[in-house]
Amino acid sequence: MRKFVLLAGLALMWLAAQATAYEIEDRRSFGPDGASRTLRIISTGDASLFEPILTSFLQSEPNLRIDYVVASSTQLSRAIHEDGAVMDVALSSAMDLQTKLVNDGYALPHRSNATSSLPTWARWRDHLFAFTQEPAAIVLNRAAFDGLPMPRTRQDLIALMRANPDRFEGRVGTYDVRQSGLGYLFATQDARSSETYWRLTEVMGGLGVKLYCCSGLMIDDVVTGDLAVAYNVLGSYAQARPEETQIEVLLPEDFTTVMLRTAFIPASSELPDIAGRFIDHLVTRQWDNAPGLSQVFEGAELTRDDQALRRIRLGPGLLVFLDGFKKQAFFEEWRSAVLQ
């Protein structure tokens, strides 16, 4: 018995050492205290965003606790890839990193009725499953556009900014693609979709663009009026703040990049069965009480014109942008456009 306790203690210490190797932003627990099993979820999404779905899952799983760890997409990737952290579910908006983790063999397969009823673009290899689709939006401050027509496309925006440099000087924001995985994903996909992206980036660079790490901060600055335009903001975050009437969320009509939030079961999972059920729950659940998180099922109407939707495709194509050479080349081009 003493030996066992000793061993268990050592194991716990080792686990703790492991757990600290990657940086976490938040850690929350759900479910009864005395539960015998703990489902470990690592996610890039705010706990508040996911709380409803976690609690609804716990209702069907008595005697289960959920340990919900929030980390950035890079830290999530590092936790699974390098630190070998024991996790049962990995949820992330960084589709490229998720794809790479699955491609490199850090995921377990999962097949169920729920996953097989997903559209083919919403799953890859029976390992990676999309459970929301979220557009990259342009968030505008209404007051800043006073007297100007509201833009509907990137071209409109470019024309407006070129015509009114005084009004927009220093009041344009976007992701710093070198810092933010999601920003990089949006930028690379935009660049792949249209040359307009580079023109827009150059125009924004000329206006002294402010660079951000996260969507939330950008939206905050648009709300206060520090920013007139925030480009490539996670639409779901903006739509989750309907009380902010001074902002306008624009899904550009020329094309709107749509990111899929994805989940997989890490190979290190100790509860793959429950993890599988959790993924089923994720993909089948109505996301009605989470505005902006559009479900993967039932096609999800994101814009009036579905033609303009560019869903980022799951699959090996995403690995291209993670290549070191490719990344360096992209950063250089981006830097020369932004930092003139």
């Binding site: 491609n103 890859w124 490719k326 080349a329």
Partner: peptide, 25 residues
Amino acid sequence: LALDIPYSAFSMLGNVSDDRVFYTV
């Protein structure tokens, strides 16, 4: 040496099957 791997180089593999892709240069 500049090596700008085209997106299509890997996405074409994804069109045919869901197989995992590895590469080295």
